[in-house]
């Protein structure tokens, strides 16, 4: 690099300089560069302040200015909605930020998820024993879901159905009803006839069916204490006939 070029870079510029091609001040350029580096992941305001080594007020001013010039945008991080994140306008927020297909404007799309669950459950019941692929195939054939969903989305939905205790996850042993499924493959089955229809409401256990089993004050309950079985309001209510 020639001495002339090097000196022109090192030359101190005036604070209000607008010498860049985009009309940005030095501070705005630094802030923009820091945000741009993060690409589609966006950057938390506090991280921007630390990384840029500028005073908070200058960073805030630069961000407002950059937003006004339509060079950066504020994005919602579904995992930290309270934290302000910024991203260069040319990028689209990553799925980590938006939450993916099951989020709508940073809000969990519960209605959509429930519809997905319902359709998947219906297909599993039809198939009796289903694999992820067979559920996917059935749904694609029926055209029940128009949204662009990948295999892993369906896997997540089936996982949620297992957690809801709507279906059980079993591994194929290659015999009987699993005859057509390779051994060791994860399968999904609706519960036996006793559970069908009652699956969403699991059987109430012995403890859960009495006040003490669900009592929030059980730890402070003693025979002669302030909270005691003889003065318990939950017992009173339970034994109203």
């Amino acid at each position: 690099m020639s001495r002339f070029k090097l000196s022109s870079i090192l030359k101190r510029k005036r604070p209000d300089s607008t010498s860049t091609s985009q009309g940005l001040t030095d501070q705005e350029q630094i802030v923009y560069k820091v945000i741009h580096e993060k690409e589609n992941m966006g950057m938390w305001l506090r991280d921007i302040k630390r990384r840029s080594n500028l005073q908070d007020a200058i960073v805030n001013k630069s961000i407002i200015s950059l937003q006004a010039k339509n060079m950066i945008k504020e994005v919602v991080n579904v995992k930290n909605k309270g934290k302000k994140h910024y991203m260069a306008v040319e990028f689209e927020p990553s799925t980590e930020l938006t939450g993916g297909a099951f989020y709508d404007d940073g809000i969990l799309n519960v209605e959509f998820i429930n519809i997905m669950k319902k359709i998947c459950l219906q297909k599993i019941k039809q198939l009796k024993v289903a694999t992820l692929e067979s559920v996917l195939q059935q749904i694609k054939t029926s055209g029940a879901i128009k949204a662009d969903l990948k295999e892993h989305h369906f896997e997540e939905i089936l996982g949620a159905l297992v957690l809801d205790n709507e279906v059980m996850e079993v591994k194929s042993n290659g015999m009987g009803e699993f005859g057509a499924i390779p051994e060791g493959k994860v399968c999904y089955k609706a519960f036996g006839k006793q559970r069908v229809g009652a699956a969403a409401e699991p059987g109430i256990g012995a403890m859960a069916s009495m006040p003490c089993g669900v009592c929030p004050r059980i730890r402070s309950c003693t025979p002669d204490g302030v909270v005691s079985p003889s003065t318990c309001v939950y017992f009173q209510k339970w034994l109203e006939f």
């Binding site: 205790n165 699991p202 059987g203 109430i204 256990g205 403890m207 859960a208 089993g213 669900v214 009592c215 929030p216």
Partner: peptide, 8 residues
């Protein structure tokens, strides 16, 4: 245990 967790 699950039924206790659900109710409580």
């Amino acid at each position: 245990i699950e039924s206790i967790v659900l109710k409580r």
